[in-house]
Every structure is written in structure tokens, then in C-alpha cells.
Nucleic acid binder design. Structure first.
Lengths: 257, 257
DNA sequence: ATGTCTTTGTGAACGCGTGCACAAAGATGA
DNA sequence: TCATCTTTGTGCACGCGTTCACAAAGACAT
């Protein structure tokens, strides 16, 4: 998972397996869609299909949260939305800072979905003095010098790093020193952090390379489904199973190298 | 990860475990950095540290590729770069199309790392007629009508979807029908594809929600490392292991909901 | 109340991934 | 040539995650 992902080994947090936590947002999204269509209840089979997972897996996932279903009926949509939101900590607002307002940083800042799900862009930070004061997505960019100040004033605990690879570790260190304990890293670097700090990475280049691997395998594999066959099968029933990231100091790191 | 990720169950491709494939790009990046510093050989221990993984894991990963190391010495950097590149299919050029040139699509198009690692932006495609002909990252945006034409002419097999959620499945279907067999999905939707087509997803919103979960857990957990402690430990030794609005049809989907 | 039918919740088995720990292999020096 | 030292490659065990398959639970009709 995506990406790619850097989290603690496999320590399950409060009994909920990490793999389950990673799927909860998926369920939540499907449930929200149902909620907006005013669907009152949903079966594990239906919801699993909407989320693109196995129904047994979904039921087991929910069983870690508690017994929220009714046998013979299914799950109450609204209730489940609330329970999952609460479990994920989305009932409170999380102020977030984005560091590195290049192409990607600006794209992230412009994304309207931040506010809608418990996240709020508290500040945009960039090292370029020329950017300071410039409005991006309606928010004035602030200079890196203000970083500690901003984190402290807003009680920020989640930081997003969208800087070039060369600056990422330094920014990370400053964020952590200022009190940030969760980091979403878009820079193509392995970040080193103290225990107690969570890092997740999103690495487009890695994702592409993994696709290239499978693509190459398909091309060399004559026994596999051919492109033509896949083409023809496009409107047939389809199965999407489960789920689920330049060396240093170069470009704004939209896509790691 | 981000990404989260959607791939076939756990079918190991040609004997190489999926988990290993996902780490190869990481090793490759570390090796490339060493190569640029003209380091001739590297031990599993050193390389593992640079890639942020366990050295035993790295050795086991490499053992799937073959015996490329020399006992008592380590691995030849250049040779390993070549072998991994070849294994990942990066020795050939992969033409890629990006569909949906909003904030994110533009950010991706502007990323310089595409060309550097076997990937080449063959075309930028958007549904907005007003975008057609407009240059983004030096490439003229083409209208969706041209999609099939473009895929076919350029022999594109990898597509990147950066459209709003509501358009993603439709775009996906057209890409697949036109011959694309690998898709990198940035839209916050579960894509349904025929067998033989690989889909990986990058979903910022999911990553943030997972961070929020852990953040909440930390906050409620008094036995855990406090923010202050993490702050103080920032320059101590650190261990990093191993990673819109409504549901459908709105904003450019930088960040799923 | 009783029976039938649907759907949940979970026990159990299996498979993949991880990490330890060590034997085998090669380099290096005497 | 032989001994020593370093580092690889891997056998093995363990644990997490997935999936099957079914018993328990509740809804609903009669």
C-alpha cells in the first residue's frame, strides 16, 4: 500500500490488527455513499462488494470493533458510520500542516476533502522566501522559519511532507522536534524517526515500478490472459480482490525516483 | 503505504514474492545513490540500513533473484542495479498516459522523475474541452475523445487515473478496452477490472485516516511514549522499520475521502 | 409458539512473510 | 597451503492475515 507504507512492525494496536485498520477507511467510504442514498441497512455481502473485499474478511474486521450487526438483517449504516468514524478518530478535528508547496503540495492544499473528514489544513509551509505570503488554496504560505511556532500554536500532530527528497529528513526532524507524531511522507526517501512517531509513505515511483514488473511478466508470459482477451472481457464480470508507494535533493518530489 | 494497493491475491509471480517485488524499488533507489557516489560494493547490512529494512530480509529478497553477492565481500553495486532494473522491467521504456489534468494530474505531469526511470509521459488527457491544446509540463493536453487513438498509437500499457471519483470507473473501462493492462488509480473509488489487469491505488485520505487512528491511540494511551519524550528523543538513535466532498463526481480527487 | 430462512460472528486450518541463527563460501594474510 | 575472518545464502520456526465453513442468533411468517 499503497502503498507503500512504513508503520510499526505488526504490533496490533488495542487488539485491532493493522490490516483491519487499513481497511476501515475503505468501509467508511462505502458506508458514507450508502448513507447519502439513505440506505438504512446493508449486508456484509453487499458492503464487501462495494469496498472490493471478501465478505468473510469484512465480517471478521467488524468483529474486532464489536458486534454491530443483526443476524438475518445486516448492519445499520448510520450506526456503523459512527462507530468506524469514532474508531478512526475522525470525530475530532485534526489540524494538519503541509510542508513543501510545490506542484504536489499545492495540489494537496487545493483538495477539498481535507475539511470533510476530520482534517483541517492549519498551515502551508515552504522554504522559498518568495512563496511567503502567497495564497495557495486560500491560505497564505508561511516560511519554514515559522514551523515550530505554527506547530505549537495550532497543536498540530500530523504533518505532510511534500518537499524534495534532499530536504525531507531535515523537515521531518524539525516537525518531530516541534511535537508532530504522525507523518505522511511524499518525498522519495526513507525517513528516520524516534519511537512513538508514525510514518507512512506515498511513493508514486515505487507503485509504477511494481506495475512495470507485472506488465513485463505479462508480456513475457504466453500462458496468461492476452491484452486482446482482457480487452474483450472488459464488460464481462470482473473480480477486483483485496486491499490495499533522483536519489537526493532534486525535484519537488511528486514522484519519487 | 499508500497506498495502499490493489493487486492479485498472493499469487507470486515467477517465484518472486509480492512483498519482495514491492521492496525492489526501494533497494534500487538506495543502490542508485551509492552508484552515483561511485561506491563499488556494499554489504547487505549497509544496504539494508539505507533502504530501511532488516538485513536478513534483504538477503532473502535478493536470493529470489539469484546469487549476486560475494561472501565475505558483499554485492557489486553496478551489477545489482542492472539486475534489479532488469527484473523490474525498467530497462525498457514504458509509455504512460495521465488522465485527468487537474491539480494532481498537473503535478504528476510536472514531475521530472518520470523520464529518469523507464517511464515516459506519452500523453495528458482531460475531459474538459477548454483544456485541450493547453500545454502542461510542455505537453499539450488532449481531449478524452482521443483516448483510444492515443493508447493505440503509442502502445501504452500503463495508465494513471487522476480524475474525480465519479469519472474513474468509466475512464478505467475505456483504458482497459483500449489495451491498457496496468492502472495506477488516484481516484477515491474501488475500480472493477477484468482478470489480467493490474490496479494499484494511491489514496491519501486513507493514509491520513490510518495516521489519525494511531494518533488517537497514542493520545489515549498513557503508557506510551509522550509527545514530549518523542520531542526530546529526536536526535537520539531512531528506528524506522521496514510505510472532495461528496462520494461521487466532484473535485479532481487529489485526496480520496 | 414453532419452524424456516437469512445473515452474522467465529473456530480452525492454511499460507505467506519475517527474522533468527548458522553453515557454507570466498577473501585475505601468513 | 592453511588458518582466520567476513559476509552471504538459507533452513527453520513463529506469527499475522486470509479464507472456509458452520453454528448461533435473530427476523418473519404461519
Amino acid at each position: 500500500m499503497a502503498t507503500g507504507r512504513t508503520h510499526r512492525p505488526a504490533t496490533r494496536s488495542r487488539g485491532i490488527p493493522e490490516a483491519t485498520v487499513a481497511r476501515l477507511p475503505l468501509y467508511l467510504r462505502a458506508l458514507t455513499a450508502l448513507s447519502e442514498r439513505s440506505v438504512p441497512t446493508v449486508s456484509s455481502e453487499e458492503l464487501a462488494a462495494a469496498a472490493g473485499v471478501n465478505s468473510a474478511k469484512l465480517r471478521k474486521d467488524f468483529s474486532y470493533l464489536g458486534s454491530y450487526g443483526t443476524r438475518g438483517v445486516g448492519y445499520d449504516v448510520e450506526y456503523l458510520v459512527y462507530q468506524i468514524s469514532r474508531e478512526l478518530g475522525l470525530t475530532q478535528d485534526w489540524p494538519v500542516v503541509i510542508v513543501g508547496i510545490g506542484n504536489l503540495g499545492a495540489a494537496l492544499a487545493n483538495y477539498g476533502g481535507f475539511a470533510s473528514r476530520g482534517f483541517r489544513v492549519a498551515a502551508l509551509i515552504d522554504a522559498d522566501p518568495a512563496m511567503a505570503g502567497k495564497p495557495v488554496a486560500g491560505i497564505a504560505v508561511q516560511h519554514t522559519d515559522e514551523l515550530e511556532h505554527i506547530i505549537d500554536d495550532n497543536g498540530v500532530s500530523i504533518g505532510v511532507i511534500a518537499t524534495p527528497a534532499g530536504a525531507a529528513q531535515q523537515v521531518c526532524d524539525r516537525l518531530v522536534a516541534a511535537g508532530v507524531t504522525s507523518i505522511l511522507n511524499f518525498a522519495p526517501t526513507v525517513l528516520t524517526v524516534p519511537d512513538g512517531v508514525d510514518v507512512r509513505k506515498v511513493d508514486l515511483s515505487i507503485e509504477l515500478q511494481i506495475l512495470a514488473f507485472h506488465e513485463q511478466r505479462k508480456a513475457g508470459d504466453e500462458g496468461a490472459v492476452t491484452a486482446a482477451a482482457a480487452r474483450a472481457a472488459v464488460d464481462a464480470s470482473a473480480s477486483s480482490d483485496d486491499d490495499r508507494k533522483g536519489p537526493d535533493g532534486d525535484v519537488p518530489a511528486v514522484m519519487p525516483a
